[in-house]
């Protein structure tokens, strides 16, 4: 009986062997020819891809970005000016503080650039998003030319999205979510800033949910200098007020998280970002 089993097994194997095709593998049936390289592609390769393995997607690819929104691709002339700002106000400070290894491990593997903002049904529009710890998409580059105000806005947008990436790689403490639990709302656009601050949110958008709250805390912390940050906290009612107290609790968790998880001193990061923003604006 055992012998019969082996015989049957051998016969099966023979059958499968008979099915194998001896032909060599052929070239891919898909067209794998890369797009012709332009000077823009060379610049991206030299500044983002070669050293940091970051692919910058500026050419439109169907279904790659929010397929539910009607968007247009970026104007090629807007790509390098934007990336230069990002290099200085985001990439440089993080590399200087965290080191190249940290940066290569945490930097998004893809930065996608879109020309238009994403108009949404409720009258809001999408300016950026972070996905799966791997990609940051920045929208609206065609209609947001770089000027003094915009440098700060782009710096904020990118630090905000990068904070999401960091959170997607290593979660922030659940204690953060309990501070304002019950106060997050979808009607965050219809609340005055004074009211928002009074409830312990650094911005209107922070009120939309806890993950955005955390990203807004980090991004505004590094974009504002110490005085402006303190002004915001004072506008939240000052020491003893509910808004102030909650913001300080969130600040403590945020500082500890960045230090413990990534060894990033947010005070030092803020100083570097401030210097770079000032330099970029001075060079405009």
């Amino acid at each position: 009986m055992k012998r019969l089993k082996y015989l049957l097994l051998a016969a099966f194997m023979a059958c499968f062997a008979a099915c194998s095709d001896d032909d060599d593998f052929q070239d891919s049936i898909l067209d794998t020819t890369p797009d012709p390289r332009t000077p823009l592609d060379d610049w991206i390769w030299d500044n983002f891809t070669n050293d940091y393995n970051i692919r910058v997607i500026y050419k439109w690819k169907t279904f790659e970005v929010s397929p539910e929104l009607l968007l247009v691709p970026v104007d090629e002339a807007k790509v390098i000016p934007f990336l230069e700002v990002i290099q200085k106000v985001w990439m440089g400070p993080y590399i200087q503080l965290g080191g190249e290894v940290f940066f290569k491990e945490t930097a998004p593997k893809q930065i996608a650039l879109v020309g238009s903002v994403g108009f949404m049904e409720d009258g809001l529009y999408l300016l950026g998003e972070a996905e799966r710890g791997r990609r940051i998409t920045i929208l609206g580059l065609n209609t947001r030319p770089i000027n003094a105000d915009r440098v700060e806005q782009f710096a904020h947008d990118f630090h905000h999205e990068y904070t999401h990436i960091l959170n997607q790689l290593k979660s922030y403490p659940t204690a953060f979510e309990t501070i304002s639990a019950g106060s997050y709302t979808t009607a965050w656009t219809q609340v005055s800033l004074a009211n928002v601050l009074g409830q312990g949110f650094i911005s209107n958008y922070a009120m939309s949910d806890a993950t955005e709250d955390f990203a807004e805390m980090v991004s505004w912390f590094v974009i504002y200098d110490a005085d402006r940050w303190d002004l915001r906290l004072q506008a939240a009612g000052g020491p003893g007020a509910e808004g102030y107290t909650k913001l300080k609790e969130k600040e403590t968790i945020m500082l500890q998280y960045m230090k413990n998880m990534y060894n990033i001193d947010l005070y030092a990061l803020r100083d570097l970002v401030q210097v770079e923003i000032a330099k970029v604006i001075a060079e405009l």
Partner: peptide, 29 residues
């Protein structure tokens, strides 16, 4: 002057992949 490319996302597709005059008619802003 802008980029164009082909893809096979829905059969053979001709796509204008960086911003051009044609995109003005699609611009949601």
């Amino acid at each position: 002057e802008s980029a164009y490319a082909f893809n096979t996302s829905q059969g053979p597709v001709l796509a204008f992949t960086t911003y051009s005059l044609l995109h003005k008619l699609s611009d949601p802003d």
